[in-house]
Design a binder for these strands. Structure first.
Lengths: 192, 192
DNA sequence: GTAGCTACGTGATGTATATCACATTCGTAC
DNA sequence: GTACGAATGTGATATACATCACGTAGCTAC
């Protein structure tokens, strides 16, 4: 399925649009391709766009003290990603986003999102719903962080996204779980 | 300032509304008063409303294994709170919300929110913005959880909300930070 | 092929924190 | 006032995890 159709199904599942409305809206999305390792957003730079993932896998991460990396999100197909703090408040990026694999995305500027939201009530509805979904996921992850130990969080992650196990290096999974790569290694070799 | 005026300023800061529009919107908000300790939402029950805090302080929390409590949010004046997962998906509550102090709130049903969002584009805009704000706060807290140690998170919390120190018992602050009350006690008595 | 780099495993050790236990202070009901 | 429960402080011990150190396997460039 091509990018346009993927986005159309994704949006109209939540907010019904006529074909004309969607075609108009789609004119603001720019298709882009990236190679494994390419950087979309880097800390300290200006952030103007958000990205809808068509294929591949991205990671949004934070680097602490130039040493430790924490992964905020693995962005898989039909996920949205950006530094939303920087994007909405027009400040410099505090996180980084790059490609774990080759990836295709649709790129939407902050300005254009606000434009279509104000022009099309249904678009505003869609983005409200999408943000709500992100909020719930974030709350759920926070609770999991407080409530579960590392092993439980590891199993939770892999049961939600089994494809991650073979797609991303283990030290990135550790960075998502917030533990050292050594601890993660010991964890899943323990119950061998 | 009375409740209606507080809500009006809160909303129109983000989404300009005429007086008529706001008066109409406000008819869906029901003022309610609660005493310290009263319960607004409890795990396993149906959730139909969200709450806008006018005065006092509420807590949204999760109980694990009938033993450990984790606080997701202290809801202060001009904050919104509910079990949004249950509210949006029409499922049973998985968290609890009760009053740390006497409190006044404005109560809005899920049905009425969706109604005014579909009737008034500006209302939809407001709720998109509000949810976005919650999402960013949640992400920030998650990052803080991974990145900072307990002492840093304690100081971060108190610098953001200095009034909490005298308002809420220390074991609730511990439950927000995700540490035992003993550890928290030792932390702020250490640097005396 | 070799060199070099990245991912990954694993042992030894240190540390932050949970947990258990008990004491003390404070507020509230009566 | 007294009694009782909730909140808090603090010591002793256990444990999960970080960190450091080192080794190995696999991939890429040349």
């Amino acid at each position: 399925m091509e990018a346009k159709e993927i986005l159309k199904q994704h949006i109209t599942k939540t907010a019904p649009l006529t074909d004309e409305q969607f075609d108009y809206l789609f004119t603001y999305f720019k298709p882009q391709s990236f190679k494994k390792g390419q950087v979309l957003i880097s800390e300290g730079e200006k952030v103007d766009h958000e990205y809808f993932v068509i294929s591949g896998c991205l990671k949004a991460f934070f680097i602490n003290d130039e040493i430790k990396m924490y992964i905020l999100q693995f962005a898989m197909p039909t996920w949205w990603t950006s530094d939303y703090g920087a994007l909405y408040n027009q400040t410099k990026a505090t996180i980084n986003i790059d490609c774990i694999t080759d990836a295709e995305v649709l790129c939407l500027s902050n300005h254009d999102r606000e434009k279509i939201c104000s022009e099309l009530h249904q678009a505003e509805h869609f983005f409200r719903w999408r943000t709500n979904r992100g909020y719930l996921a974030s709350q759920k992850r926070l609770l999991s962080f407080m409530n579960n130990d590392t092993k439980a969080r590891y199993e939770e992650l892999l049961s939600l996204y089994p494809q991650l196990y073979n797609l991303v290096p283990k030290h990135l999974i550790a960075a998502y779980l917030g533990v050292s790569r050594e601890t993660l290694s010991r964890l899943y070799n323990a119950h061998k």
